[in-house]
Design a protein around this nucleic acid. Structure first.
Length: 565
DNA sequence: ACTATTGGCGCG
DNA sequence: AAAGCGCGCCAATAGT
């Protein structure tokens, strides 16, 4: 196998104002050296070739971000901050280090400023000690193998995020502008409403007989709708869709286009899209936040990359001579549930690529649509409506899978924590939640107290129910990313970057929970498509061994994201 | 005049 | 048909 000669060398990198301290840990012995900031990239490149080490640092986004910009890439790392966050919660461990505690944890204990080490650099000895402590914590945990896998996957995700942020998503500023102009009219001057929006607003005002209405104002819009005789409770889209009135069509169109304009319009492009490499298109540079969501999913900071609307995906265009390989997993969460529950019958329904159709074929439920609604309801804890009616059929058919989600919900309802497959632990409910639970049992508690407490308990149960599934799906996705990254490195060669750090071979450019995009030279597109599939299979084996669940992908080789799926 | 919250909607 | 999970972002509004 290519790229799997894993050495046991770890190199701890501690940056300070002048440069960096390197602690090379090899077979228990540590050799120290210091490097000037300007020499760090070259030194890292050299040591990477020599040792293929695992790089240990506090903050991948900061340290590796700088290295990537200097044209250096590495194979493996261990992100002390990300891993520490997982370990603390997993084991309710006492703070491994008070220094770290003070420096690393904010109010919520999660949001440390990325510049931290530039401001108050920790002594190298402290960082080395933290690494050792984390190793001990893992070794003493209930399932060290899984926890170590989680930490490795999380750290690999941090590498991917730093690289994707640097490389950016290929973006055609020209196609984007064309698309905007087609539906909104020409770009208006500073902050003005585009012509098409202005015309739609006028139609709405006309139809509602509200000449001064600003359709962006929720309360004003609701008042105008009501005085026009439309009895709606909110101005939400789905409620308006039920209404038969001449104002509705232009209003819905206004809302759709107003959102496009404000969320992904010209101002957005100005802020987030930058010129690309020579001969290439522009790039959109999302700022991913690894582990930014409680369940372990990624978040983004600015730019809204994880909400990139289908409307604008036509602006995601491969460079000339390159292609996009777009892949997403079909029904990731139910598959993950089947595997973690060891539910063979549910896994059986998932075989063949369409789990929802599988449920119909097994006679569990009558239509594919119902199967989907019921499954999502089971994962989210739906109790009412269509979904609530259908869920029980599913629960009866799959007792093992049911036990996993219902068990998680029950633990949450009484204030307990739950764990994902690899061991990410849910947070404890907040103090206000506990206070409400206590209050209902105190003398003098009112019906209202009891009602509030029960509602909060069920809310938290739905959260923990979903946590185990969403969190395990996120773990699968991390392993998929990590495996794919290794395969792409094997294809492109580890040094397939220009001096400015931009990639010259196939590389990941987008990740969206259960979906990836690889930007690749056209002649390698089919190899990449194969790699993406093999990586998915690899992730499934890594997590679930030989349990017979597969993770089928929809893979498309396209010029523009709009043509995928 | 400023910041925090809310409603609405995009994504999975 | 439209509620059950997790998010981020925008404009308007409420709060100070």
């Amino acid at each position: 196998m290519v790229g799997l000669r894993l050495s046991s060398v770890e190199i701890v990198v501690v940056e300070d104002d002048d440069g960096a301290h390197l602690g090379v840990v090899d077979d228990g012995a540590t050799r120290h050296e210091t490097v000037a900031a300007a020499d760090l990239p070259a030194r890292v490149r050299h040591l990477e070739r020599e040792h293929r080490p695992r790089w240990v640092w506090a903050d991948t986004a900061a340290t590796y971000g700088r290295l990537v910009r200097a044209g250096v890439r590495v194979e493996r790392c261990y992100d002390l901050r990300l891993c520490r966050r997982i370990l603390r919660r997993a084991l309710h461990a006492p703070p491994p280090s008070e220094l770290w505690d003070a420096a690393d944890e904010g109010e919520e204990g999660l949001d440390a400023p990325p510049t931290l080490f530039g401001v108050t650099p920790l002594p190298p000895a402290e960082v080395l000690a933290e690494r050792a402590r984390q190793r001990e914590v893992v070794a003493g945990s209930r399932d060290p193998g899984r926890l170590a896998t989680l930490l490795a996957a999380e750290s690999a995700g941090a590498l991917v995020a730093a690289e994707m942020r640097h490389d950016g998503l290929p973006w055609s500023a020209e196609a984007h502008d064309r698309l905007l102009t087609e539906v909104l009219g020409p770009r208006p001057h500073h902050g003005a409403r585009p012509a098409v929006l202005e015309a739609l607003a006028a139609q709405v005002r006309d139809a509602l007989d509200a000449p001064r209405l600003n359709p962006d104002s929720g309360p004003a819009l609701l008042r105008a709708l009501r005085s026009a005789g439309i009895s709606v409770q909110t101005t939400r889209k789905w409620e308006l869709e039920q209404v038969d009135h001449p104002a509705v069509a232009p209003l819905l169109e206004y809302k759709r286009l107003a959102r496009l304009h404000s969320a992904n319009g010209w101002a957005w492009a100005e802020e987030w899209v930058r010129p690309g490499p020579p001969g290439g298109r522009e790039r959109f540079h999302p700022d991913y936040v690894v582990g930014g969501v409680v369940t372990g999913r990624w978040a983004t900071r600015g730019g809204g990359a994880l909400q990139l609307p289908k409307q604008v995906r036509g602006a995601v265009v491969a460079d000339p001579g390159w292609r996009l390989v777009v892949a997403d997993v079909a029904q990731l969460e139910p598959r993950v549930l089947a595997a973690m529950a060891r539910d063979e019958r549910m896994a059986g329904a998932a075989r063949g690529g369409d789990l929802y159709q599988g449920l119909v074929d097994q006679g569990v439920i009558d239509t594919r649509d119902h199967a989907k609604v019921a499954m999502l309801g089971a994962l989210y804890g739906a109790t009412t409506g269509r979904s609530g009616e259908l869920v029980p059929r599913l629960l009866r058919a799959f007792p093992r899978a049911t036990a996993v989600v219902e068990g998680a919900a029950m633990r949450g309802e009484v204030g307990g924590v739950v764990r994902t497959w690899l061991g990410r632990t849910s947070p404890e409910p907040p103090p206000a939640w506990k206070a409400a639970q206590d209050r209902q049992h105190e003398p003098g508690a009112t019906d209202d107290d009891r009602r509030v407490a029960r509602r909060l308990a069920r809310d938290w149960g739905r959260f923990t129910r979903n946590f185990v599934v969403q969190g395990t799906a996120a773990e699968w996705a991390l392993c998929w990313l990590a495996d794919l990254r290794n395969r792409l490195r094997a294809t492109a060669g580890p040094d397939a970057v220009r001096p400015d750090g931009t990639a010259t071979g196939p590389h990941l450019v987008f990740f969206l929970h259960d979906e990836v995009i690889v930007h690749t030279p056209a002649d390698l597109a089919e190899d990449v498509a194969t790699a993406v599939r093999e990586a998915a299979a690899g992730a499934g084996r890594l997590l679930f061994g030989d349990f017979p669940i597969d993770f089928p992908l929809d893979v498309a080789v396209v010029d523009t994201y709009a043509d995928a799926g």
